[in-house]
Design a protein around this nucleic acid. Structure first.
Lengths: 166, 166
DNA sequence: CGGCCAGATAATAATCATTCTCCATTGATC
DNA sequence: GATCAATGGAGAATGATTATTATCTGGCCG
């Protein structure tokens, strides 16, 4: 996603009043390099080459700290482990309901949505949009294996606000 | 939310090829009457007057079955238990980041969002919008207790796609 | 009417993600 | 170098959810 050198990462940590440690440099650096919105587990496995002694709990703590400091954010799906995102620019997500890949997604129409709603006294401060569907690979896979009875499709995932086109 | 008589509920279950049982009638009926998007736990407690022997696992299974049949949907928040919604009309949600109340939300601008995106081959089929902010009660509570250092605000909840107004 | 089958339910154990507890380590400051 | 606070590691504990297994219920066949 972004190529950020360790020094820059260190600066960001310091600015956020987080102590600069190898664990944080590595985990945050890894997250910055990836654009697949990894889970804590996934990050844990990714950085074990660099930090063989790292414990999973530390990954969780580090991600909590980074999120608390506003350096990263969560992009979580129902019925799944947390996923994290180091891209702080306002953007939304394409979510593949088959392989669950999450892709960043920018669109003027969505970008410009205002959140000044005061319905029933609610004061909005941000908005999240998730576009659900099938990524290119899963479309192909489903076409190829159509005779399998669509078994690749998870049975219960995201039923809210289906478009009514049928 | 809706007042649906047991007979109507029974019809819906039958149409969905679900056997009509007291548990399902009660749980689905309860969910239809509520507009707070309850969790399985919450539903479990709500219906214990009617079904004292009900087990929590049955609530989960019933909700799974109803969701699988397309009669209800999930509205889940990160770091929380599942929440369910019996309102199948296309709509979105206002989420209070303090008390986590979820309110249904309809807006033409959001309603009309098309999901014909084919970015990088992605085929969209539905869209979810969550508007995050503070409900009326929590706004008041925060104003009243301002001196408490905003302690009412959960530290980590939904950092994605903050509006940049400040 | 009594037994049988399928699906539904209850009770309980198991699983998974996540968090907590407790102690060791580190780094900054004196 | 000693001290204090923050951090990290190991593993236990927690909470939500799911799986397992046995029990129950209601329709159907004789």
């Amino acid at each position: 996603m972004e190529l950020v050198d360790p020094h820059e990462i260190a600066i960001r940590l310091s600015r956020a009043d987080l102590k600069v440690t190898p664990q944080r440099l590595t985990i945050y650096g890894e997250l910055l390099e990836r654009d697949d919105h990894p889970s804590p587990e996934s990050l844990y496995h990714s950085v074990r080459d660099d930090l063989p002694k790292l414990s999973l709990a530390t990954v969780y703590k580090t991600l909590d700290a980074l999120e608390g400091a506003g350096l990263i954010s969560q992009v979580s799906l129902p019925n799944e482990a947390k996923r994290y995102d180091a891209n702080l620019e306002p953007h939304h997500h394409l979510v593949c309901t088959s392989c669950r890949k999450i892709t960043d997604f920018n669109d003027k129409k969505f970008q410009s949505l205002e959140v000044q709603h005061t319905e029933s006294g609610f004061r909005a401060h941000s908005i999240q949009v998730q576009v659900l569907g099938l990524c290119e690979l899963c479309q192909k896979a489903l076409q190829t294996h159509k005779s399998d009875g669509e078994g690749t499709m998870p049975s219960t995932f995201y039923n809210t606000t289906e478009e009514k086109n049928g």
